[in-house]
Design a protein around this nucleic acid. Structure first.
Lengths: 189, 189
DNA sequence: ATGGTGATGTTACCGAGTCACATAAGCGAC
DNA sequence: GTCGCTTATGTGACTCGGTAACATCACCAT
């Protein structure tokens, strides 16, 4: 096995998911992951900031996506439409393959407090990105925060429903439906 | 220095805050903290679950507080009143001393990604506690989530304003004012 | 004083993450 | 082709957070 096998990052990712599924996250050692991928611990930490990021690194693009969704909303869109477009673009990036990955990953996440904490951090990062994007479009700060909370709550709620469902409804449909539901709740608060 | 000095936990906490303020969180070693407190690393980890918890352990009671606030709301209170009472009791527990501590702690938190992540986790835990408490009183799940987000957003926003201010306004006043502001934003979403 | 209990210390260990340095692969220039 | 440059990987040693087994000491009741 020569050193220069391609896609080191992908190999590490696949090795990690296998091992996490087999023995659990905490019981898997970074050295074991590297070994299965035909690499060493050092290389692993050159490609991933830390052990948790092996699982979450893919999520980093989501903050950029939600920003783009807000920025590319139609001219003259109001605050709520800006938010909706943010979560619409965000949700639109998820394919059936992501759903399959989610089904593998979710039980692993649920079993590890460490991963849970990172997951919450990522959710917070996405929320902040959405809030920032709204602020950048002149939305009132208080409203931007509340809108971001609502949008991301719809996104995560929709995601859970989407992963749990086995029909062909898209994530976007789930999420947008939930945005509508949540907005109708607001009128009663 | 005999072994049986009282208040090992308090000594560790004070030693830690001193060292964090002097050299920063990451640059401070758990062994250094223990040494300054006249103890050892082992004892430190017997009293704190991990290094981050030295800073955040005190926050664990907050989840119980917000629950209690919801549970002890007046008979016949609606969902929103339940939530408001939760954050009211939560805010009411903060004294001037907490404000002083916050002024020391906040810059330390801001400087450490690791502590930041834990702070966000704690916020999420408080939000979930509030949401749970509302669910326990029969509030509709969707509404409970949104209410919890709003309440905790008001609490944290109010907290920041309170720590930054130097007048004698209480945290509760700040937070309740913010709840009102946020609620008025909702009508426009 | 004696013995039990609980808080602490000692020692050794594991695993995440870092660093300085070595090495090999790929690639273009000549 | 081979020389040199760059880039990806390996090596080995190290730090630090965190755990565990076992020893030890203080306090207290009897």
């Amino acid at each position: 096995m020569g050193r220069w096998e391609p896609d080191a990052q992908g190999r590490l990712l696949r090795a990690a998911l296998e091992l996490f599924a087999e023995h659990g996250y905490e019981a898997t050692t970074t050295a074991q992951i590297a070994e299965r991928a035909g690499l060493t611990k050092t290389t692993l930490f050159r490609l991933f900031a830390d052990k948790r990021e092996i699982v979450f690194q893919a999520q980093d693009e989501l903050t950029a996506l939600v920003r783009r969704g807000v920025d590319e909303a139609v001219e003259g869109a109001g605050p709520t439409e800006l938010m909706v477009n943010g979560v619409r673009i965000l949700s639109g990036a998820h394919t059936e393959q992501h759903r399959a990955t989610g089904r593998i990953l979710d039980p692993i996440l649920a079993a590890s407090p460490e991963l849970n904490e990172r997951a919450i951090f990522k959710r917070s990062a996405i929320t902040s990105a959405l809030e920032d994007a709204l602020l950048g479009h002149g939305v009132d700060p208080l409203r931007a925060g509340v809108l971001a909370d609502l949008g991301i709550r719809a996104y995560y709620g929709g995601y859970d429903a989407w992963v749990a469902a086995d029909d062909s409804t898209t994530l976007t449909e789930h999420v947008l439906a939930r945005v509508t539901l949540l907005r109708s709740e607001l009128s009663r608060i």
